[in-house]
């Protein structure tokens, strides 16, 4: 009589996050700061992306102790990351009771060919995408929420902007195509044909699409909302800034009122130093997290 893990229940969970900010945290104290600042969810991690980048080596699912510590600290939803294609990490996170799993390129991929069959799980998944083809492949595998990949841990918004603009442009293109063009477009994008039919009909993605990767300031968050994001993930941007608490609040407000420039101006005053950023062109190809997964 009660059906769990249906598409509506999994996608609906992401709908409830719209207009909100999801923050990366590494312990209970940070989780509480995030909740108090108005985050709609937290992502429990062992290290934020900037530290993963600095540490190098293989990045894996967080220690379950940290995930549980965060789950016990807050009443808002808790997400956690599993490596791309790592069936067991994902099953472990599901058994811990996390509310959402991020199959994430921030961690070192476990499988270079296959992403998870996310339709197999009761818990919903969010996945990163650089363009519409990638986004729809993930939805085809059962992702209930999407986000841009950006370039995590850099504090540089340019890649997230590129990914969001590309997805929006491709959505418009499909909405304007005639039906007889869609199969060829599906072939070109490497995307399921049925999902293209759906987009032609609705003009939008079948699931919520957030911005992620490189958001460091309130203006960055507002920019991504203006480009059509349903909400934002902030990874290193908050707890790598000088005053995480003020930063967190300012980013939440800028996301809600993304077209109120006077307000964003006020929010940006005296925030202290943002996280230190990285120029994308200085990254070696092997350091580009967005190129993980396909």
């Amino acid at each position: 009589m009660a059906d769990r893990g249906t598409d509506r229940v999994k996608r609906g969970m992401a709908e409830m996050q719209k207009g909100g900010v999801i923050m990366d945290v590494v312990n209970a104290e940070q989780a509480k700061i995030a909740e108090e600042a108005g985050a709609v969810a937290v992502m429990a991690l062992e290290r934020v992306p900037a530290d993963i980048r600095a540490a190098g080596g293989v990045a894996r699912m967080a220690d379950p102790t940290i995930v549980e510590e965060v789950m016990n600290a807050v009443s808002i939803p808790v997400m956690a990351k599993a490596r791309i294609g790592h069936i067991v990490e994902a099953k472990v996170l599901e058994s811990l009771g996390v509310d959402y799993i991020d199959e994430s390129e921030v961690l070192t991929p476990a499988d270079e060919v296959y992403h998870l069959d996310k339709s197999e799980y009761t818990v919903p998944f969010v996945c990163g995408a650089r363009d519409l083809g990638e986004a729809l492949r993930r939805v085809g595998e059962g992702a209930s929420m999407l986000r841009t990949k950006g370039e995590p841990g850099t504090g540089n918004i340019v890649e997230a902007v590129r990914h969001m603009r590309l997805v929006q442009a491709e959505l418009k293109k499909i909405a304007g195509m005639s039906k007889d063009e869609l199969m060829t477009e599906a072939k070109n994008l490497g995307a399921p044909y049925e999902l293209l039919l759906d987009i032609k009909d609705t003009g939008r993605l079948p699931v919520v699409n957030f911005a992620a990767g490189g958001i460091a300031t309130p203006s960055d968050a507002a920019l991504m909302m203006q480009l059509g994001s349903d909400g934002v993930f902030v990874g290193s941007g908050i707890f790598k800034s000088e005053h995480p608490d003020k930063y967190a609040r300012a980013i939440v407000e800028a996301t809600t009122h993304y077209q109120d420039y006077e307000l964003i101006g006020r929010l940006s005053r005296g925030l202290g130093t943002a996280m230190q950023g990285l120029e994308i062109s200085t990254l070696e190809p092997s350091e580009r997290m967005q190129d993980r997964g396909w």
Partner: peptide, 25 residues
Amino acid sequence: RQRESFETHLSVKDVGEDIDAVFIR
């Protein structure tokens, strides 16, 4: 938590029978 979220059908007084209801956390 989310894994316990579900959908069902409910009878709602004055509104109707078999109302589609999605429960999320």
